[in-house]
Amino acid sequence: MDKIVVENLKYKYPLTDKLVLNDISFKIEKGQFIGIIGQNGAGKSTLCQAITGLVPLFFKGAYGGRVLVDGIEVAKSNISDISLKVGMVFQNPFTQVTGSKLTVYEEVAFGLENIGLNREEMKNRIDEALNLLGIYRFKDRNPFDLSGGQMQRLAIAGIIAMQPDVIILDEPTSQLDPQGSEEVFKAVWDLKKRGITIIMVEHKMEKIAEYSDKVLLMHDGKVIDFDTPEKIFSRDDLMQYGVIEPAYTRICKAFDIKDSGLYPVTLDRACEMVVKYNEHN
């Protein structure tokens, strides 16, 4: 069964005229890594919020169509119930720290206390989440004393502990330094390997190409294309949507290095194909 189904989704923020989401439909299978790309203002964040139910349950406004998670319609559910199925990580690690907890360990407990978990289960889940994100050694630190990358991994741990099977990340590394973003990407990759469905909005196309099973290209509130990274980045009209191919793809496009009509999108594949190309010429 499809994990997430979006059907003819339309949405407009209160007091505005423009449709931020304009007739969007797509389906996501369980366990996939989906990258969402498009220029700022394309509607990427709003789409993420619609899958978690923040739109329209937190942000009101005009809403049409439906979003189904495991067959349950989110607009008719409530955010707390959806949060057990779909977790979301935002751009700024700092505003995701609750501010009411004094240690990293207690911070992860926040959501678990809210859903009324018993203490044994809570502790098991916190230990597991902190270990998975590689921040167990900071468990007694104040959350605000962590670095950006560590704080963002703490935010993910807080979500993971709720054991959702879908995690949405909205530009999770844009505020981080290269090492911090690498830490986050690695952590997310581990989650994907455990069978968690990942949806990630990201401007770093090389990363999207490396990790995604499928890429959703958005522009002006619409879905332009939803396909494999190779197919998406082999399009010749990306510039029109304010998107650029990964560096490796751009190089191969310049020399028309392709395989059955598709250009390579990752470093390894590009290298392989360039070598082959050089041998032939």
């Binding site: 330094d177 290269p178 090492q179 090389e206 990964p246 560096a247 490796y248 190089i251 470093l267 390894d268 590009a270 290298c271 360039v274 070598v275």
Partner: peptide, 15 residues
């Protein structure tokens, strides 16, 4: 310094 060279340079190295 925990930095990586730009993507084009990475490809050059790999080749």
């Amino acid at each position: 310094a925990h930095l990586e060279p730009p993507y084009a340079a990475q490809l050059c190295r790999k080749l």
